[in-house]
């Protein structure tokens, strides 16, 4: 086993799992909590990466994360504004914003498809330089990401229990109830999508600083991956309390990365990788249904067996 999956591979899988878990948490807010299909994820993720990269190159990696989040808030606001105030269907609103973001992302990166941030400090290099030693050098990235994701989880858990958070959850859970109570669904939807897209952009800026580059096509397929992670997570935790569902989203994201790592170790060629991802996603989404079908079959067989036994007497 140690030969098949080395500590390094597990570590990398966990690192990416944690970064992508922020996107999964964003989808948790939009898809699970608000019950909205926000397809602007791909573009917003790249936006975060691009904005983060620009600010990092200017020499402010920490500020880069915050600037990316601010950009994400703006993107989320536009998506939310389109669907609440202008009556654009949520799926369409996401696609429109996603399309528009492509040009904006290019513009942010100075109309080049690629941007390298080699040679400037990133949050990862700053954190790594805090302590000396080989062990720290190897694990500092993971520890930083773990701390960051835990912080985000704690804040999100806290937020969803506040009055505003409860109102956002009610908006997705029972539109009729929201109409009958004093909640303004337009406001809660906008706030929810702003928070979600801030997390997506944060993930983008982290990946940019981690890879030391920004690419215009970075976000392609992100929404599918995050959705798969979310569904893996939800099938693990079920509909329990918010705290568990948040942790489930993070765990789902890490698990997805592990599955990808295993596929990579099995020497799946890179050209086939999109297909492999799609298959993993399809399996993850179909798994709960398949589990149910198997259970039903088993019960049917048991009932038939019991009936024939009863008839023989």
């Amino acid at each position: 086993m140690t030969g098949f999956l080395t500590a390094g591979i597990i570590r990398t899988a966990l690192e990416f799992g944690l970064i992508y878990s922020l996107v999964t948490l964003a989808l948790f807010i939009s898809f699970s909590v608000l019950n909205i299909c926000d397809l602007s994820t791909d573009g917003c993720y790249t936006l975060g990466c691009a904005v983060g990269a620009i600010v990092t190159i200017a020499g402010h990696p920490v500020l880069g994360l915050l600037a990316a989040m601010a950009a994400g808030v703006c993107s989320g606001f536009v998506t939310a504004f389109l669907q609440t105030k202008l009556g654009v269907q949520s799926i369409l609103a996401g696609i429109i914003v996603n399309t528009g973001l492509y040009t904006i992302n290019l513009a942010v990166m100075g109309f080049s498809a690629n941007l390298s941030i080699f040679g400037t400090p990133t949050v990862f290099s700053l954190f790594r330089d805090l302590f000396p030693g080989d062990w720290w050098k190897a694990w500092s990235n993971l520890i930083l990401l773990l701390l960051l994701v835990l912080l985000v989880c704690a804040l999100l858990n806290w937020f969803l229990q506040t009055r505003l958070g409860l109102s956002i959850r009610a908006t997705g859970d029972s539109p009729a109830m929201v109409r009958a109570s004093s909640i303004n669904p337009v406001f809660t939807t906008i706030v929810g999508l702003c928070v979600a897209n801030a997390l997506t952009a944060l993930a983008g800026s982290l990946v940019g600083q981690y890879n030391k580059q920004s690419d215009i096509n970075l976000g392609t397929g992100m929404v599918t991956v995050a959705l798969a992670s979310l569904i893996i997570g939800e099938s693990m935790t079920g509909h329990r309390s918010v705290k568990w569902r948040i942790l489930g989203a993070v765990a789902g994201s890490c698990l997805y990365r592990f599955i990808v790592s295993v596929a990579l170790r099995l020497n799946v060629p890179t050209e086939a990788f999109k297909l492999v991802s799609a298959v993993i996603v399809a399996f993850a989404i179909a798994a709960p249904q398949a589990k149910k079908a198997f259970a039903l079959q088993r019960r049917k067989r048991a009932m038939i067996a019991a009936r024939t036994k009863g008839g023989a007497q």
């Binding site: 109102s167 959850r169 029972s174």
Partner: peptide, 24 residues
């Protein structure tokens, strides 16, 4: 409403539902 399921949020706890009503 006539539909007893419409006035409450099913995935939220009793306490959370009440606190939303109390927002007013």
């Amino acid at each position: 409403f006539q539909d007893p399921l419409m006035g409450t949020a099913p995935h939220m706890t009793i306490e959370e539902n009440l606190s939303i009503a109390y927002l007013r």
